[in-house]
Every structure is written in C-alpha cells, then in structure tokens.
Design a protein around this nucleic acid. Sequence first.
DNA 1: GAGCACTGC
Length: 707
Amino acid sequence: MPSMANSQNRQPNGAVSNSDARRQYMQQILQHRKSLPIAAVENRLVEEIRNNHTLIIVGETGSGKTTQLPQFLFKAGFCRNGKAIGVTQPRRVAAVTVAKRVAEECGVQLGQRVGYSIRFDDMTSGSTMIKYMTDGLLLREALLDPYLSKYSVIIVDEAHERTIHTDVLLGLLKKVQKARSQTANESLNSDRAMTDSDSKLEKEQGADLVSSLKKCQGARIPPLRLVVMSASLDARIFSEYFGGAKAVHVQGRQFPVDVFYTKGPETDYVDAAIMTIFQASGDILVFLTGQEEIEAVEGLLKEKLQHLSKDKQNLLSTPIFASLPSEQQMKAFMPAPAGFRKVILATNIAETSVTIPGIKYVIDPGVVKARNYNPRTGIESLNVIPTSKAQALQRSGRAGREGPGKCFRLYPEIEFDKLADSTVPEIKRCNLSNVILQLKALGVDDIMSFDFMEKPSRMAIVKSLEELFLLGALTEDYKLSDPIGHQMARLPLDPIYSKALILACQFNCLEEMLITVAMLSVESIFYMPREKQDESRAAKNRIASLEGDHITFINVYRTCDDFLAKSNAGSSKEKTLKNMRKWCKENFVNGRSLRHARDVHSQIRGHVEQMGLRITSCGEDMLLYRRCLTAAFFMNAASRQPDGTYRALASGQVVQIHPFSVLRGTKHDCVIFNELVRTSQNYMRNVTRIDPLWLAELASHFYAAQD
DNA sequence: GAGCACTGC
C-alpha cells in the first residue's frame, strides 16, 4: 500500500487552495482503491453476498479485502436497514489501523460512519456503520446481545489464524445465523429482504435451534450475512463447516520472494543463521525462538564482527520480542545508519503482529516456540517445534513487502514437504474454562455437542467443566450457577480470577485483589535484560515481599501510584505518562505491562461496582489477604516434601518455584501458585506462601479427604 | 545458575 499521508493540513506551497488539495487527495485515494486486485471483482462479491448466507473469501496478502469489502457492502446498501457491518480482527492494532485507513478513504471522521472498538478504546458512535473490532470483543458483545442484532453482515477476517476467539465466534455465528433466519420467517415472511437461501436454511434447521439462545420476543431481525476471509489456500474446511458455503478466490499483490533451502540438515541452526547473515547483502529478518536465543545470537554476532576487517563491520543487529519494552522495540523500525545494514533478530512477533519496513532477506530456521497444554495435568509447556507450511510461507512473505526478496530456509527442501499444512488451532492447545463459561452464559448448555469447527478433546472439556464446578460457577448438573456463575461470566478475566474477586469481597480485601488480578492478567511486569541482570534483580528485591509474588505485585502497583500522586498532582496526562516511564525505567518494571494493568484495573473495578460488590481494603492485614488467596487458588497448592521438592496437591506432580519468583530459593511448607509451566522442569509461576491448615479450613470440599 | 513464543476480553 503506497503511503499517503493525510494532506488535508498541508498547503502545498500555498499554490493550491485547501479544497483543491483535498479533492486531489481524494482522487489519489480513489485511484489507489481502483488499482487493488479486489476492485476488479467488486460486483461479483456483492452479488455473491446478496445471494448466499455465507461466503468464504480466500484473499492473498495485498488483495485489499480488509479495507475494501466493507465499503463495497456499504455502497451496495447492506446498511440501509440501519444495521451495521462488523469486521473482526484477531489483533487490536489491525482493527485500529484498518479503521483509520477506511475512514480516510471514505472521507469521514473516525468514529462516525467508520469506527473501531477494542478493549479500553471505543471509537464508535450511533452512526457507525462499518465497525472494525477484535474477535474477542464481538464475543463479549454477544453476551449482551445474543442475536448480534445490530449487524446485517459480519466479516470474520484472518480466519486462517484460528485463534480461540475466531473458532468460538464462528460456532456462535453459525447458530445466530440460523436463529435469525428463523425470527425473520416468524415475522410472517413480511421481510422483503428474504431470499431463497433464507427459506432453504429455515427448512434445514431443527425446531430447538433458537431455544438455546435467549429469545428476543417480537423483534424482527433480518438474516445475518457472514463472510469468512482467510489467507490460507485451503478454503475447504471453512466451506465444509458452513454447509458447503461458496468460496471465492481473490488475487493478491506481493513481490516475488526466492526461496532457498540448505543441501542437508543443519545440526546447529543458530550457527547456520549467523553464517547466512554474513552472506546476505541487505536488511535481514531472522526468526528465532525466544529472548534467550536472541540475546545469544546478538552476543555471537558482536564477537564475530570484531574479528572482521573494518569495512565488513557495517552490520547493526536489533532484537525484537514481545516482552521487550516498547522504546527498545522501536529501534527495530528505524532505518540503519548510512552504509550499515540491519539485522533484526525476532521471535514470532514479526510474523504477523509487526511489520518491519525495508526487509529484503528472511532467514528461517524452521522452528518456533509454541505453547501446549496438557488437560490431564493442567501443565502448560513451551516447546520448540517445527513450523507449519503456512507459517513458513508467512515468514518468507515478509521479504516481499516492498520489493523482490529472498528467503533462506535453514533446512532441506524435502523437510518442507513433511511439515504440517497449518498450525494446530489454538482451541486444541489451551485451557477451555473461559470459553466454556462464556458459552454457558450464551445459553449453550451442552458443550459436548456444540458445533465446534474443530472439537477440543473430551478430556479438555471435562477438565474445564470440573474446574468451573469446583469454582462454584456451575451447579451439580453443570448449569451456570446464580449469581456466582453469571457474575463470573460477566468479568473479562480468567474464571479463577473472577472467583477470587467475588471471594475477596467476603474477605474484605477486594481492593487488594483487584490490583492482584489486574497484575496477574498482564504480561511480565519485571524486565530483566541479560546485560543488567544484577541491577534489575536488586531493583526487584527492593520492592519484593517476603510473602510472595502476589503481595510484591501489589507493592509495585501501589508504589508507582504513590510516586505518580506525589510527583504530578494536577499536571497533564502526558506528564503523568512521562513520570511513569521514568519510574518504570528506574525500577526495571515494564511500563507497557504496568499501564495495561492499570487499564485492566479500572475496567474491572467498573464491572465489580456495577455488580454491587463493596470495595474494601484489608489495610495492613496481609494475613487476611493470603487467606483469601488460599480460598481462591486452593486448586493450585503445593507442599514441600521431606526431600525438599514441592508436590502439587491436586495432581501429585513434582514442581518447583519458578526462577522469576521472589520466593525462589526459600523453603516454605506450603504455597499457592497461579500456573504451572513446563520448560526444562515443572515450574510454579506467581507463588505465595500460605499456612497448610488454611486449605482444609477454606477449601474443605476439595481437601476433605486429607488430614 | 536457573528462565516466559504470540495474541485477546
């Protein structure tokens, strides 16, 4: 996409009037829109969507589908009934940037006809007709409006990524679609928008389809059109899922990327990557598995450069990974100084989440660190595994954004053929408690027979149902409990954190627990660069609580709050942000994470207040607070064995305190933790010491059989 | 001396 800065405020030499400049600019935009591959099939797409309930669009990168299709549909009158076009994205940034772009193309103010809505940031109004949003947000909307009645069309973009939200959303949309065509028919077929396909669909459906959705009595909602957009070549799975829905292919526009393979297998891909870096001649993007590996390669590169002649030292390496503070991430986006070439050492973040300009070469070792979840043990693991074919293609595509590029895959071509076509959908790799709670709140009682695109294992479903039951969210017959289950479903948190809040109200420490769940809901709070390990560790120890990580989080949150209150009473928002950045830097706290935690905190506080829970503080009585933690996280308790190891009480597994925990190296009889992660060993993350007697007292239903 | 890929409500 050519960069077209908004020229509205730029008076070109004063020679052209403002309105002329604007006209010229709009003309330029129109030309650009017409040149997109999708423009050639506008009429056909509009017709297909008019005639089909569901349409699958396979659009390659650069086809313009995300920005153009909603505009086509708006123009074709899909909003005439006052209903909006919703477009979902897996990522926040995408929703925001695309909405901004489309508002500009339409010549309207963002938040008017075109807007976006993501968590913490709603840029929509009553007049918004094209609404971009995250898929998770639309799922939340469904809790309040089960028919999604304000939309005439929903476009699910990037469906090939198969995030857990996309998968659940597709299942839900299928249901909503059927239900809505039924209500449309119930209204005496008076809706002229009814088409043959609507009545065909109505005949196919069972009588009880609507019964699981809350009935919207007397309302006449027109049928819902659904468009599933995917970049994967395989449209079949989507088409089959939607009863043989029609699929349309739209060409993309990318520069060619030559792909090279190694002759034989590489024993050491880090070594091979470094060799390849020195053979390429432009800006390079190297995909590595994690922070540790990136830092190792950085070190090796520096070492190697020192042994080269001066004229060959013009290489600048920059790391980028998610937990890197944003100021340092920015360095990857800056052009290298004249005469230098840039090597970006990146994790998966550079696959889809960020696009680094100027990349001509991609080095792909063919591995990725991926999360896996074992429902039996409740342990998450991070393993280095081969990428999928789709992932390899995505990576190589990063070299062809601005011109022809090259991709070096550090494995032989026959290995590529052996790779899985696509990555295992997230829904098969994670804990389902949250998803199940939401489905239950949407009226889906029988999870086992819910029409998932890809069904999670029976074990995973059963385990999560069990967990929700133990938390009191479900009754004995696995129905959503009242009020606890309903309250928990309303909170945008892991169910166990929602439960902790409800309990904290009874323990009079809701203020502390609000901070806790906010801090637990965000990415790592402490930042520990390898080269400043001692300094960062000292900073952490200054603020740490001997009781454990939970109280340490409260300390961090409150200390920063106090600092802000003292240093900028009454000053501007920018000043506050600046002060916060300063405080974070001095204390080796990740500013992005802490800001995020403050956002979560205020959002959740709002929800909790709305539920009528009283926010009280336990003051200095942290014993009370730890008892409350015990009551909430009783399933995650571990006790120390005579041999010094810890054993998780629920599963009996040997576990250890995570090296990042403030309790690392301490010896307490009993602890609670938030999650189990398996890397080189089974680690408990976020740990607090408790009295073992509290377990029997506060979670007798779980520990009844124990002495 | 150990060790957290990436999203999202």
